[in-house]
Amino acid sequence: MLDKIGIAKRIAQEVQDGSYINLGIGIPTLVANYIPDGLNVVLQSENGLLGIGPFPKEEYVDADLINAGKQTVSMLNGSSLFNSAESFGMIRGGHVHLTILGAMEVSENGDIANWKIPGKMVKGMGGAMDLVASAENIIVAMQHKSRSGASKMLKECTLPITGINCVKKVVTDMAVLEILPQGGFKLLERAPGVSVDEIKEATEGKLIIEGEILEMNI
């Protein structure tokens, strides 16, 4: 099984040189720490910053410089600033290549639910609906099962949907799954110490297994 850092490290392997990337809150934010040296990528923050730098040293903390998770950040050489309409223009316009975000449920046809639990969580969708409706590649970081052991890899989402037919790949604590254009979770890799049978058991949606499934290399 992978911990959160393991999931972030595995997703970092998906990052391609020269891409512009939006990282969601939580595990996706950690991905930035594990992007392989030598790859040139630019991180976008939807509140109006391209080129997110590391957290600032204490003496450079600036209330006017935060990321979409409201954390204080820094800028890099080549960073740029813009307003929120411009920011979502670059998202919807397809200029941001990769979106990495968390989820509560994913379905076998690539639907994602991550913004609302009726009667419980009323925080809002923030930029998630715009991001999942627009990016050409969407990778989800999440736990395979709920705390009570119920699968989060479903035939159909039970929670309110954030976007439809949009998720391309899911990296969980148990597996790497590709969502096929015709539907179905194709098992690509299994986490260290996790068997194919355990993944079958934990996946409610259609699971497609072809040939030998190798363990992740992290």
Binding site: A85, F88, D130
Partner: peptide, 25 residues
């Protein structure tokens, strides 16, 4: 959705009564 909110406000200031977006479909 945040991008829809931003664009609805932008549209209000720019005299565009409505627009189409993929967010929320």
């Amino acid at each position: 959705p945040q991008g829809t909110l931003a664009e609805r406000v932008r549209a209000g200031g720019a005299g565009i009564p409505a627009f189409f977006t993929p967010a929320g479909v």
